[in-house]
């Protein structure tokens, strides 16, 4: 078996913690395969624009691409349910429950079917980085209510989430991560969300926005994916495919640990060093968001049979796990004590 080399372009800059995690995943594959799998990670824009990545991987312009399924909502609206079911698809599934749906609840089967049969692409998809929940984001001026947010132009992730915001009367635009701060600096947008404190800080959000709202429902779960061109994937021996799949699972665990520690570090810096005001999100945004989500999702399910199938699978799974997981997990967020470090 000869060495398989892959150039994988990501949708994040080199300073992103998720870029770092991808490099580590590549190094793991390299070590486990005894040097037979070499992955080279490229930053956003190195070969193509992030929004052109799906076509680029399908055609083999790059061997692999790192992105989020909801970026492909323009090809089929069901895309968003795999990486970014807003407010847990309106069911209350949190990030761990969503990963459980993927790995145990039939999600991965639907996910692979989505690329192979629905979009009919030459792509082997892998889920790698559960990075949610994402904060509502950054604002130039503070907001006190949903009404205030309606006056702004807000960078939201692409896909149905945009339609949910539209339903709420909020003006959303989507643009690749690297364009957000420049756009805000030049006045294209007044508010923006990206990923979380660590990556937002790395992109320099604190230089243009001075108000940060931590709680958001639009990406209560948010999973990054690696798409590999099928021809490149089929060059891998069965044991090497298993290595890549295992490295993807390992990357999930490492992502959880990064999320907690790196984001906490970044938040300290954002508040302390850069004097950004961190606020609680105005309460009237949440019920409006859930209402809009269910409306948009039900409407979409009526138009798109595959969307309906995935949504029903998630709702079914939520019926199983929410009564257990949500029931107990609330207590464990604080372990029953009023923590002195709150």
């Amino acid at each position: 078996q000869s060495t398989v080399r892959m150039k994988i372009q990501t949708a994040v800059p080199t300073s992103s913690i998720y870029f770092d995690l991808m490099k580590k995943m590549g190094e793991r594959c390299d070590k486990m395969s005894g040097g037979k799998i070499k992955m080279e990670m490229l930053p956003d824009g190195a070969v193509v624009n992030a929004f052109e990545m799906l076509d680029a991987v399908d055609k083999g312009v790059v061997d692999g691409g790192y992105s989020w399924t909801h970026y492909w909502s323009g090809k089929n609206t069901a895309a968003g349910l795999f990486s970014n079911p807003a407010a847990g698809a309106g069911t209350g599934m949190d990030q761990i429950s969503h990963v459980a749906w993927l790995l145990q609840g039939g999600g991965m089967t639907l996910y692979k079917r989505f690329y192979a049969e629905v979009l009919k692409l030459n792509i082997e998809p892998l889920m790698v980085q559960p990075m949610g929940p994402d904060p509502l984001g950054w604002f130039k001026t503070p907001i006190a209510s949903l009404e205030d947010m309606r006056k702004l132009k807000y960078r939201a992730p692409p896909g149905l989430v945009g339609e949910i915001f539209k339903e709420m009367g909020i003006n959303a635009v989507a643009m690749p991560g690297g364009e957000i701060v420049p756009a805000a600096q030049r006045g294209v947008i007044d508010a923006a969300e990206w990923i979380g404190p660590a990556d937002d800080l790395a992109l320099g959000f604190h230089t243009v926005f001075k108000h940060y709202y931590l709680q958001g429902l639009h990406q209560s779960t948010d999973v990054g994916e690696v798409l590999i061109n099928k021809r490149v994937w089929d060059k891998l021996a069965p044991e090497h495919k298993a290595i890549v799949e295992t490295a993807a699972l390992a990357c999930m665990t490492e992502t959880y640990s990064y999320n907690v520690q790196r984001n906490a570090q970044a938040l300290q810096k954002i508040q302390g060093e850069f004097k950004v005001q961190v606020h609680d999100t105005p309460k009237d945004i949440f019920p409006a968001f859930i209402k809009a989500t269910n409306l948009v999702y039900d409407r979409e399910a009526g138009k798109n049979p595959f969307f309906k199938e995935v949504l029903e699978s998630q709702r079914q799974f939520a019926k199983l796990v929410v009564p257990y997981w949500n029931k107990i997990v609330g207590l464990y967020y604080n372990l029953g004590i009023d923590s002195p470090y709150k």
């Binding site: 970026y71 909502s73 323009g74 896909g159 635009v173 989507a174």
Partner: peptide, 15 residues
């Protein structure tokens, strides 16, 4: 044939 839309805004026009 796939009725692809732009997702860069909530307008979502066909591409």
């Amino acid at each position: 044939v796939t009725h692809e839309t732009f997702v860069s805004s909530s307008w979502q026009p066909i591409t």
